[in-house]
Simulated assay, not measured.
Amino acid sequence: MNKLLFTAQDHTFTICAYGQSEYLEECIKSVTSQSVQTNVIMCTSTPSEYLELLAKKYDIPYFVNEEKKFNSDIATDWNFAISCAKTRLVTIAHQDDLYKRDFAKEVIAHFNGTKRPLIAYTDYAELRNGREVSDIRNLNIKRIMLFPLRPRFMWPSKFMRRRMLSLGSAICCPSVTYVPENLPEQLFIPGYKGGIDWQAWERFSRLKGEFVFVNSIQMVHRIHDDSETTALINGNTRTQEDFEMFCKFWPKWIARIIEHFYRKSEDSNNL
């Protein structure tokens, strides 16, 4: 199989917007001021004048999911966001997060030379109370989990990626770039909330192809009290979903033990 070559025109940031996030404009600025200019669009199931005006201000194509705007969920929103992009590579940009200036450049460079890429994902930092942090327990644990997938020759290994996923979801969802032509038509399956991304990685891990790891911090995930991640962790939804995911890799009694320690590590997502 020939090795692939991608250019900036093969990539799209699709901003998945909803409500009236005070951080959305920062996200837009981060993806429209990349060192390599790629495509940027905005998608929503909750259309508003606020979103439309921001899209016009930055000359971003604006797409509204008319079918689901009154009955939507995360999976539906993300699937719609992917479908609106017409390029071979798509990053779902989460509206509260920030992308480093070289994010697109590094992701495209790492895709080049692959044979059948499925996804690419990067290392990341967190933004807490206005301060970027990267040397914290939760992130360091995830880096240890991802360590075996640093070498390029490990990217096609189903065994290695499934072993990594069997211990938790170390892949940061907003850092992921998808290659839709090599993935199932429905990337995300409705039903999960906090574990929707981990569920997708588990499905993708069974496919022939490469999990491309960009081993440098290329985006910043914002942690704040109103974030979906924080809300799910404070409730019981995340605990049950995590247990169900561990059961895809382990017997139930082992899954329960791993889930207990995994939940403790996730506590650092609270401010």
Rank of each mutant, 00 (worst) to 15 (best):
M1V: 12
N2D: 13
K3T: 13
L4R: 11
L5Q: 12
L5R: 09
L5Y: 10
T7S: 15
A8H: 07
C16T: 12
A17H: 03
Y18H: 14
S21Y: 03
Y23N: 10
S33G: 09
Q34M: 09
S35F: 07
V40T: 13
M42T: 02
C43W: 00
C43K: 00
C43D: 01
T44Y: 01
P47Y: 07
S48T: 11
S48P: 05
Y50T: 04
Y50E: 03
L53K: 15
A55D: 01
D59E: 12
D59L: 11
I60T: 00
I60F: 02
Y62C: 09
K68L: 07
I74Q: 08
W78D: 01
W78Y: 15
N79R: 02
I82P: 00
S83W: 01
K86Q: 14
K86D: 10
D96Y: 03
K100H: 14
F103S: 01
F103C: 02
F103Y: 15
A104L: 05
A109P: 01
P117T: 07
P117C: 08
L118W: 02
A120T: 07
Y124L: 07
Y124R: 13
A125E: 04
L127P: 01
R128I: 15
N129V: 06
R131F: 03
R131S: 07
V133F: 05
L139T: 01
R143G: 01
F147N: 05
R152Q: 14
F153M: 12
R161C: 02
R161D: 03
R163N: 10
R163S: 08
S166T: 06
L167W: 11
L167V: 09
P174A: 05
S175A: 13
V176D: 01
T177N: 01
P180V: 04
P180W: 03
E185K: 13
Q186T: 15
I189D: 05
I189H: 11
P190F: 10
G191C: 04
K193M: 06
K193N: 06
W198R: 03
W201R: 05
E202T: 14
E202Y: 12
R203S: 14
F204H: 04
K208I: 06
G209T: 06
V212G: 03
V214T: 13
V214M: 12
S216T: 11
I217Q: 08
M219Q: 08
H221C: 08
S227M: 05
T229N: 02
A231G: 13
A231I: 10
R238P: 00
R238S: 11
T239S: 12
E241H: 04
M245Q: 13
C247T: 14
C247D: 00
W253R: 10
R256W: 11
I258E: 00
I258K: 14
I258R: 07
R263Q: 14
K264S: 05
D267M: 14
N269F: 15
N270W: 04
N270I: 15
L271W: 07
